[in-house]
Structures are given as structure tokens and as C-alpha cells.
Design a protein around this nucleic acid. Structure first.
Lengths: 351, 351
DNA sequence: CTGTTAGCGCATTCAT
DNA sequence: ATGAATGCGCTAACAG
């Protein structure tokens, strides 16, 4: 029954008593193949169980209809359980499939330019969606040099030339969160963010900037200790929150990472800190996620489905060599739920 | 600076004043290329910015080092936010990368055999990891016929010949959960499971079987209403739990799906049903997930990292044509945490 | 140690 | 409407 070797287009041609050209024509639904010959070929294909070699087709056409999604290996564990990543990932794959592409998941050993480029250049894909490495200037240069289409999932440079990304307005995000808390009379606010090698990811830097803008507007002086760096994994976050609350008792918290948010809520649950009675909490990320938490969390809501779809569009434009139409960053919205309350001195304080 | 066309191995050969064979040899670090020529070639490569065509290499070698992960499009939304899937997915990609493979995410329009086969056969991948479609007998036959290496993520057949999967012992899972609740004096138990087209997924059927075994052992008669079918998405689950608790007040719940578990906990939070005081709850899935819930959930713990790695091993064995060594299903363990308590009449009942 | 030759499976000229 | 011939980029067998 089974062939020793998989049948090729030649076997089909022979079986159908035609040439490979004809077979190729019926495969590609070419114009004008006589119905009779066409049927002969189809029969032969059926009889042999012939499947055209995708590999050869890619080789010939130069198009794989594959989009590479590049992530640093060290990030993958953390990132995979992050609600924002999940939302992006889902939107990315759905959009890609809608456009006839599949997603190839690529991980680099580390999150630096060299490691990224090393894996990217050896991959079969028409273009790459890159989850930004720690530094990406050299990576960008290398990709340009090699003429490889790419897009980044976030703002990756301050050079206005570098506009191959779709972002949200993160300054606005930090601003509306801060402003809302200040409106609620909070002054003792802490902004919990992740940190990479002591610095901030660009979007966190922007959010902090927005937060500072709100503070200034309300005449509250910014102090360094308002920014609290806590790692983004569950246990480390829990410990980080613990450490914070041993020395400090803010009345409001902004948390830039979803996993840290869950860890914080768990910590508050475990230690009888009531949200929002004792503490107001604002999260950042996809709204559906915060809606599934208890208490329902007030959050700065990002439309990741939208930005992910735009990102794929952008990449496809680059692949097709079309001029790229940059997208305006979408403003995030504040969704007010049950985790934020007005601060007053009279409010019960945790012991 | 940039070439009109990407340089090929021929361009390099010309530039280095050697033949393509020699270039190929240095690319493949072949034995015995004179250091001097080797350096000449390397220089030429550097000068031209040459990158070997992965596509051509795949075409030649027939090996892509890509593993296809096949999911029904209708499932992808639900599956992506499911803790068990995430854990599998993460473990799968990490293991694949460790073995030098990348994961290509493939979605089929629907979850039936024809749709699955249609996308699979047109993909470039050395083998496929298939998240089981609703019915897979014909799919399996077609894959065998086409000589495509595949494995399923779960038991997909009762034919002992069909052993291309790695599973856990789900009968045991249902059994230990039921037994523990019975030990705690619960009799009014409900087992919440998903359902597909009115039937159960094989692993749920097994878990139910295990539950029945426990009941029998304790002399508690099984009744149909002990099994509650609730869809696996967040909102539908919430509504399903709501509906259940309007007509029924079990003292203990086993929940076969992680999202449904979260939805249920949210419902209990919203309606003042205390866990475990008013209701004991047992979840099924990866332990880390249930540990991140509040209250900390007692759960039947599956080692998805282990089974996923084994699954990749199995697939690689098939790809390499090695005889397949089937793996014994691993027994899940009951991890007792804070969501289960002994039942006594005196216990406070919700109003 | 290096060059010559052939061919992987397919699509695409160019003839007929 | 179909066949014959060519080549995509690379590797490998065979010479030399």
C-alpha cells in the first residue's frame, strides 16, 4: 500500500501519461487544461496518494507563508503566563491565519541582538515579529542590512525613522491611572514596575513619565521611592510585595505587570489587606483579564487584539514591499471597577 | 550597500575565486579545507553579507527542524487561556527548542479530520503534534496513509495499536479526587466537566469512570445528575455554575476545567459562598496554577512538563524512524490545600 | 584539498 | 492544449 518513497510530480505524470508540466498546471488550477486530461491527472494523484512537496514549492516561490515570532528563551517562561502576552499571541495567530500565514515560534538563547539575529537569519519565514530584546539598535541594523522584513511588538527606538512597530500610548496610560488616583485623594501612591538590568523597558519608562505628569499637574512632588521595582514572576512578585508592605503602607498601588498584580492580590488576601477599603489597586493590560479577577480590578485597558492585528498588517506590507503606513498609537482607556476607592483619613487602616 | 538580489552561494564562490562546493564545505565545516581557502571564503561571505538559504537547505535535506502544532481554530480562543494548555505549550516549545526544533503553530478551520488533514499535508514540518479533534479515526488513517509522523496530546483511540500519545492516568485522577471527598464525608458531590457535541472528551470520560469507581467503593450510588456539563469559557462557565447553584446545593465540587474553576470561584466570591466552609472544591490541572488561586486550591496535579517532553521525544522517535517505546501513563497526584474540608451536618449552610 | 557534475521537486518559459 | 527544457540554491558523489 505505502510507497517506499513519497510520490513526486514525476510519478504522477508517468501514471497519468502526461508530463510534469501538465500535472503542475492542474495543481495550480492553471488556465485551460482539457477536462479529460485534467481528470486523468486527478485520478493519478488520487491513486498514488500524491501530496505536492511544500518544501519544493517554498524553494521555488520564495514564499513560505510563515511568520516568525521571536522571543528570548529567558523570557518565554515569564511571558507565557502573562495575560498581555497571551492576548497578543492569540490575536497574532488568529490574524496571521486569517491572512493565510502560520506562526513559527522562535526562541533565541538570550535576549541580545546577536542571539536574536543568529536564530532569525537561519529561519524559513517571510518576516519576523520580534518581542523586543533588551537592546535592539544593532539587531535592527543587522536586519536592515540583510533585508529581512521585521516588526517589533513595541516602540523600539527614539529614531522617527524606526517606525516598524505598533504601540499604545503608554504615557497616556500612566497618566490616566495616576490622575484617577489623585482625583480619589490618594497621595501615598506606589507604581510597581518590572526592571531589566536596572533600567526600565521603554513602555514602563513611558508609563512612569505619564504618572509623573499627573503628579505634577496635581502639585504632588515626585519621589524616587514612588517607583518600586519588582520582578514579573509569581513568587518573586509575591515576595517583592511583601517586602514593600513591611516598610511602607501606600494607600494606592499601580501595577504594571499582570502576574505581579495577581501575586499582589494574593498577598493582600493572605494578609487581610482589603481592596479597595484599605488599598486601591490599578492594573495595566487587557481588560478581560482584570474582569476575571476578584475583586474586579480597575485597569488601564489596552486593545491588544487591535494592535496585534495592525502589527501583522504592518509586517505583511513590508513583506509585500508596499510603502508602510504608520499607525497612530491607540490611547488606552481607564476601566473603573471595584478595586479603587476614595481615600479619606477616616478610612479604616490595616493594623 | 544592499544588493538588489540576495547573494547566493555562487556569488560567494565567484567572489572568493573558488567553486560552490568549496563554499558549501566551509559552510558545513567539512573536513579538510585548507585554512587559507577557508579564510578567503569566509572573507567573501563577510563582504557580501551572504546568508545561506534555509529554504534551499530544507529542500535538499528534506529536514526542516520544524514541528507542527495543530489546533482547531474554534478551540484556539478557549485553549489559549487554559492553564493546562499554557503549561503544555510552554513545555512543548522549550523541549522542542532544546532538541533543535521550532514549533509551527497550525490552526485548522474546524476541528474535524478533513480540515486537520487539509492543513497538515500542506505544511512544511518534520512531524506534527496534534491537539485532538473531535473525531480522529479517519485523521489517523489519512496520516498513516500519507506517511506523516504525528503524535496526539491525549489518548485518541481504544485500539492498542494506536499508541502515539502520552497521557496521564485520568481514571486514577477521577478516583483520587472522588475518594478524598468521600473520605471527608461528602456525599452530595458534583463533577463539572465540559462536553463536546453532547459527549465527553476521552480524558473526561476516564475521570468520570474513576469517580464512579470511588463512589462504588464507598457504597454511594451513582446518579446521572452528579455529572454537570458546563462549557469551558469564562462567562459561560460562570452562568453554568449560577444555574447549577440555583437548583442544587452540593457540598463538594470537582471541576475538570481550569477556566471553569476560576469562574466558579468568582461566582462563590460574588455570592458569599465560602470555600471550603460552605463548599469543598477540587480542581484538575497543573499544580502551580491552583497554587496561585485564592483560596489555594486542592487539586489533582498533572505533570504536564513531563508529558509534553515525552510527547516530543515520541514524535522525534517517529521522525527518525526509530521503534517507538511507549511510555507508561503517569499517575496524577492529589495535592491537598485549602479548598477542601470535612463535611458535617453542623457545618454552616449558606442561606 | 578542490573542482566537476548531477539532481532534489516544482513551476515556468518556450515551442509545438 | 500539451510537451521539452531550464533553473531556483544547495549538497554530495565522484574525479582529479
Amino acid at each position: 500500500m505505502r510507497q517506499i518513497k513519497k510520490p513526486t510530480i514525476r510519478d504522477v505524470a508517468q501514471e497519468a501519461k502526461v508530463t510534469t508540466s501538465t500535472v503542475s498546471r492542474v495543481l495550480n488550477e492553471s488556465t485551460l487544461v482539457k477536462p479529460r486530461t485534467r481528470q486523468k491527472v486527478l485520478d493519478a494523484i488520487e491513486r498514488l496518494g500524491y501530496i505536492p512537496s511544500k518544501t519544493a514549492r517554498i524553494f521555488k516561490s520564495g514564499k513560505s507563508y510563515i511568520l516568525g515570532l521571536v522571543i528570548g528563551q529567558s523570557h518565554i517562561s515569564n511571558i507565557m503566563f502573562n495575560a498581555g502576552f497571551q492576548a497578543q499571541f492569540k490575536a497574532l495567530t488568529e490574524k496571521a491565519h486569517k491572512e493565510g500565514y502560520n506562526i513559527l515560534l522562535i526562541t533565541a538563547a538570550t535576549a541580545d541582538s546577536e542571539s536574536y539575529f543568529e536564530v532569525i537569519k537561519n529561519q524559513v519565514a517571510d518576516g519576523f515579529i520580534i518581542f523586543s530584546p533588551s537592546q535592539n539598535d544593532t539587531l535592527t541594523a543587522m536586519l536592515e542590512e540583510a533585508d529581512i522584513p521585521y516588526v517589533y511588538n513595541m516602540k523600539y527606538s527614539d529614531n522617527p525613522q524606526d517606525r516598524y512597530y505598533v504601540s499604545s500610548d503608554d504615557v497616556e496610560g500612566g497618566y490616566i491611572a495616576g490622575k484617577y488616583l489623585l482625583d480619589l485623594n490618594h497621595k501615598h501612591i506606589r507604581f510597581v514596575v518590572g526592571s531589566v538590568k536596572g533600567g526600565y523597558l521603554p513602555f514602563n519608562a513611558d508609563r512612569i513619565r505619564g504618572f509623573q505628569k499627573a503628579l505634577k499637574q496635581y502639585g504632588v512632588p515626585f519621589q524616587e521611592e514612588m517607583i518600586v521595582k519588582i520582578p514579573g514572576q509569581m513568587d518573586e512578585s509575591y515576595n517583592g510585595i511583601h517586602k514593600l508592605f513591611q516598610t511602607d503602607r501606600p494607600t494606592a498601588l499601580m501595577i504594571s505587570n499582570e502576574i505581579t498584580t495577581v501575586a499582589a492580590l494574593n498577598y493582600f488576601f493572605d494578609h487581610g489587606i482589603r481592596v479597595p477599603q484599605d488599598l486601591s489597586v490599578i492594573g495595566f493590560g487587557p481588560s478581560e483579564f482584570f474582569r476575571s479577577l476578584r475583586p474586579n480590578l480597575t485597569n488601564v485597558s489596552y486593545d491588544l487584539a487591535w494592535s496585534s492585528a495592525k502589527l501583522v498588517d504592518l509586517l505583511l506590507q513590508r513583506i509585500e514591499g508596499k510603502p508602510v503606513t504608520p499607525e497612530m498609537p491607540k490611547k488606552p482607556e481607564l476601566v473603573i471597577r471595584d478595586s479603587t476607592a476614595r481615600y479619606s483619613e477616616a478610612a479604616p487602616k490595616p493594623s
